[in-house]
Each structure stands twice: as C-alpha cells, then as structure tokens.
Amino acid sequence: MAKEPVRVLLTGAAGQIDYALVPMIARGVMLGPDQPVILHMLDIVPAAEALNGVKWSVVATTDVVAACTGVNIAVMVLVVANPSNTNALILKEFAPSIPEKKHNLSDKYPDVNHATMKTPAGEKPAQELVSDDKWLNGEFITTVKQLGAAIIKARKLSSAVSAASTACDHIRDWVLGTPEGTWVSIAVYSDGSFNVLAGLIYSFPVTCRNGEWTMNKVRE
C-alpha cells in the first residue's frame, strides 16, 4: 500500500540552499524513495519573483499561513543558517510553543575521534588508517570547518549543495531513526550533560527513534 504523502515546509525557499535541497527531497534522499512528499516553499515578499524559479509541483508562497497549513515536517525545526548555534538559541527563546526536543541545528565539525572508514577488511578507525594525529586534529579540522568560506570565495556564491546535503542527512536520521547500535552528532539544547552549561545549543552524541532524539550519555 502506498504511503500517505508527507508535507515538508522549507523557509527561505528562494535561496541557494533550498534550491539545491528541493530535488534531493523530491528524489527521496531525505525521507526514503518510497515516501511521497508535498513541498511547501515559504519566503519573504521581496523574494517572490525568485521564488517562482522553484515553483513546480510545490506550494510556493510568501504567506506564512498558507505555507504552514497541513505541514508535517516543520514542527521539527532544523536551523541551517549561520551563526546556527545562536539562531537556534534565539528560536528556542522566541518560539516557546515549539518543544525544545523539536529544535536541532546543522553545522560542520569533523569528529576524527569516532570517524571510521570502510576497507576490504571492514570498518576501521580513521585515526588508525591515517596514522597522523597532528594532521587530523589540526589542518584537517581547520579545512573542514572553513570549507564553506572557501567555496564562497571560489564560487562567489554560497556552499548550497554541501549545506543541503547535510540538512537531508540530518532530517533523515531524525525522522527515520539512527541504525541500531549507532549514534550521530547533533547540536541540541544542553541539559548540563558532558559538563556543557545547561541551556546552550551544543553538539552531542544522540540516537533517534520515531522522530525523537535521545542523548547518548554512555559516551559521557
């Protein structure tokens, strides 16, 4: 039996990131190839003309009520725009009707301590295979963190595809769940675990089930 369509709301829809994100969602990268989706695209009135560029088989509007009507994936709020930690904290403070467990943000930091690489002999720790802790913990991390700025400098445009791909992966884990026995790093509000000040938005190891995340305190 075919699944019921899921309505997904994208804000800032005329922007570069959403323009790259739309085809990824449409072909099932985010919610799976067997999940029909109906996209609702919202942007501000000055962007209405640009919004027409993505207005095909979607709800594209500058009206907030029209954009949000019937939406399934919007109460799950993913913050992408920098400074993402600050923006997520502002959202948490000024949108109190959205439960804290529905706020997440997408940002980049390579966790070299837990990264693995696939080899013919199975998955191996990245640190073991690279055998250069100085490079992994120095130049590599710096390069990844500054990748967005480097792309903007080279293209004179945002690193939209990278951000869109990250957002897709993030929502997929959040909605469909993390594989059994695994966890992912997601920036969520702190409850004081891992000696991080309570109330801050910070990256923690979490597992996801049924659209909810749970902090993996075994890693603490």
Score class of each variant (00 low, 15 high):
1 M>P: 06
2 A>Y: 00
5 P>H: 12
8 V>E: 05
10 L>V: 09
10 L>Q: 05
14 A>K: 00
17 I>H: 01
18 D>T: 13
18 D>N: 15
19 Y>L: 13
22 V>L: 08
22 V>M: 07
27 R>D: 11
28 G>S: 02
32 G>N: 02
32 G>K: 00
33 P>H: 06
36 P>Q: 09
38 I>W: 01
39 L>R: 03
39 L>H: 02
41 M>I: 08
41 M>N: 06
45 V>I: 12
47 A>W: 01
48 A>F: 00
50 A>S: 12
51 L>D: 02
53 G>F: 05
58 V>R: 09
59 V>I: 14
59 V>K: 03
60 A>V: 04
63 D>S: 09
63 D>M: 04
66 A>H: 06
66 A>Q: 12
67 A>V: 01
70 G>R: 08
71 V>I: 11
73 I>Q: 06
73 I>S: 03
75 V>N: 11
77 V>W: 04
79 V>Y: 01
80 V>D: 05
80 V>C: 06
80 V>F: 00
82 N>Y: 03
83 P>L: 09
84 S>N: 14
84 S>V: 12
85 N>A: 15
89 L>T: 07
92 K>G: 03
96 P>A: 14
98 I>Q: 09
98 I>G: 05
98 I>P: 03
99 P>R: 11
100 E>S: 14
102 K>A: 10
103 H>A: 10
105 L>G: 02
111 D>R: 06
112 V>N: 03
113 N>S: 10
113 N>D: 12
114 H>C: 14
115 A>E: 11
116 T>K: 13
121 A>F: 02
122 G>K: 03
124 K>G: 04
124 K>N: 05
124 K>W: 02
124 K>L: 10
126 A>I: 07
126 A>K: 00
136 L>W: 01
139 E>V: 14
146 Q>I: 07
150 A>I: 11
150 A>H: 09
153 K>E: 11
154 A>Q: 12
156 K>R: 14
157 L>C: 09
162 S>Q: 10
163 A>D: 14
165 S>E: 04
166 T>H: 03
168 C>S: 07
170 H>P: 00
172 R>W: 00
172 R>H: 01
173 D>Q: 00
174 W>M: 08
175 V>C: 04
176 L>C: 09
176 L>A: 04
178 T>H: 01
179 P>G: 07
181 G>W: 02
184 V>D: 04
185 S>N: 10
186 I>D: 07
189 Y>I: 15
191 D>N: 14
200 L>N: 13
206 V>W: 01
206 V>I: 15
207 T>S: 08
208 C>H: 01
209 R>H: 11
210 N>L: 04
217 K>V: 15
220 E>H: 06
